[in-house]
Nucleic acid binder design. Structure first.
Lengths: 226, 226
DNA sequence: GTTAAAATGAACCACTCGGTTAATTACGTC
DNA sequence: GACGTAATTAACCGAGTGGTTCATTTTAAC
C-alpha cells in the first residue's frame, strides 16, 4: 500500500495576494520544517521563527495547528518514528536462510541510520531529555516490539537449523546492531574530530558495515559453524 | 601523583554576611555546577540562573570568570575531556598478554562510560552541535591519539605473537568498543522505553560487557585461535 | 445569497534570559 | 593604615522568544 504521494509541495500555494485553504499541506509543511529545525538544534535550541522561515506559512499557523512548541516537537517525533516503523515493516526476509536474513537486517539498519541522520538526531535529543516526551507516544511500545519479533523469528529458525547458538538473545543482538549503527551516525562529529574522518569515507563505511555483520555473526553462530 | 585533594567544598565558605576571597574554589564550584546543568539540559537548554542555584556564588561571578555562556560551556567540555584522558592514562596494561590487555581496555571503557554519564551527555550534546565547540579545544587531537596508540601497541604485540589477524585495525577496534560502550549509556532512555530496561540491570550489564569483549575478540583474533 | 465555522495574516505582548553597570568589600603591599 | 587591585553583590537592561489578540478571508452548508 503505497501512500499515494500527493506532491503539493507547498511551493505551489500562496505566492499571490489571496490564498487558498489547504490545511493538510500546511500541516505537513510545518511538520517537515519543524523536524529539520528540531533535529538541527534540539528542543530548546530550535526557534519557532526559524521554523517559520523554513515554511511557506506563518507563525500563527504553527500554534493554530499544534498548540505549543513542545506539542509540535512531539508531533515531529511521532511522525519520525512512524516513518521508521513503516520502512522496517517493508523489509521482507522470511524467505531467506537465517544467517542471510540476519545479514540483511544488519545491513538495512546500518544503511537506514546513515540515510536518516535527522531521525538519529531526534533520538539523540530525546535521550538528552531522558525520553520524557517519547513516553507520551502511545503506539510506541507495541510497534517497536516488531523489531525484536523479527529478530526472534530469525533466531528461532537459526537455532532450529543448528546454525545459531541455542542461547542467543534477540534483544542483545538488537542492542548490538543498534549500538554500532547508531553510533556511526550520532558520534560522527566528535569521532572524526578526535581520530580523523577516514572511517566515514564511502569505502570505509562499507568495510565498517561488513565488520558489524561479522561481529553480529560471531556472537550468533555456533562456534563450529563460523 | 595524587592531585592533593584540597576539599574546600564551597559549602564551607560564604554562609555569613561577609565573605572571603577564594577565586580558585569559586571557579571550580562554578565549573562543577555548570557541568551538571549543561549535561542535564544541553547548551541552549541550560539556564545560567540554574547554574547559579547549583552554586554558592552569584551570576555576576560566572560572567566575571568565564566571559559568556558559550565560553563556560567550552571550559566545562575542556575539563571533562581532561579528566577522561587522565583516567585513561592511568590504565597500565603493558605487562599483560595482548588478548588480556585488550579485554582490560574494553572492560575499562565500558565501565568508565557507565560511571561518567555526564561526560557521555556532554559528548552527545557536542555531537548535536556538530562538534563546533570541541574543535576549539587545542590539546584534543594530540591526546586522543593516545587511545589509538595504546590499541596499536596491543595489536602489534598480538600480531607478532601470532594471536591476532595481521590486518587488524586499531582505529576500527576503537570504533567498535566506543560504539557499544557509548550507546549503552547514551541511548539508555529511548532503548529502555522501547524494549524495557532489563538490559540495564546490573547482571545484564555484566553480560553485555562480556558480549562486547567477545565481540571485539572475535574480530581481532585469528580464526584458528578463537 | 446568507451564514457560521475554519483558516490565515499582521501586529502585539509578557516575560525570560544572557549579559552589564555601578557601587562595595576583602586583600596584598609599602 | 593608606592605597590600588581583585573579588563580590545587588540591581538593572535590552533583545529575543514563545505565545496571543483581533480582524479578515475562504470554504462549505443550507
Amino acid at each position: 500500500m503505497v501512500s499515494e504521494t500527493k506532491q503539493k509541495t507547498a511551493q505551489t500555494r500562496s505566492q499571490g495576494r489571496s490564498w487558498k485553504q489547504d490545511p493538510e499541506t500546511v500541516k505537513a509543511d510545518i511538520l517537515n520544517a519543524a523536524r529539520a529545525e528540531f533535529a538541527a538544534h534540539g528542543l530548546s535550541g530550535a526557534r519557532i521563527s526559524a521554523i517559520v522561515e523554513r515554511t511557506q506559512t506563518s507563525k500563527r499557523m504553527i500554534f493554530y495547528y499544534f498548540g505549543d512548541k513542545e506539542s509540535l516537537y512531539l508531533a515531529v517525533l511521532d511522525q519520525a518514528y512512524r516513518e521508521v516503523r513503516e520502512a522496517e515493516a517493508n523489509l521482507d526476509i522470511r524467505h531467506l536462510p537465517p544467517d542471510e536474513a540476519l545479514r540483511k537486517v544488519v545491513e538495512f539498519t546500518f544503511d537506514h541510520h546513515r540515510q536518516n541522520p535527522d531521525f538519529i538526531r531526534l533520538v539523540m535529543i530525546e535521550n538528552i531529555h531522558d525520553g520524557t516526551h517519547m513516553s507520551r507516544i502511545e503506539t510506541l511500545a507495541t510497534t517497536n516490539i516488531a523489531a525484536i519479533e523479527q529478530l526472534d523469528r530469525i533466531c528461532r529458525r537459526g537455532v532450529e537449523a543448528g546454525l545459531f547458538r541455542p542461547d542467543v538473545s534477540p534483544l542483545v543482538i538488537h542492542w548490538q546492531i543498534s549500538a554500532m549503527s547508531f553510533f556511526n551516525v550520532a558520534n560522527r562529529a566528535t569521532f572524526s574530530m578526535n581520530f580523523g574522518d577516514d572511517l566515514f569515507a564511502e569505502n570505509a563505511q562499507l568495510m565498517l558495515r561488513e565488520q558489524v555483520v561479522q561481529s553480529i555473526a560471531s556472537s550468533v553462530l555456533r562456534p563450529d559453524r563460523v
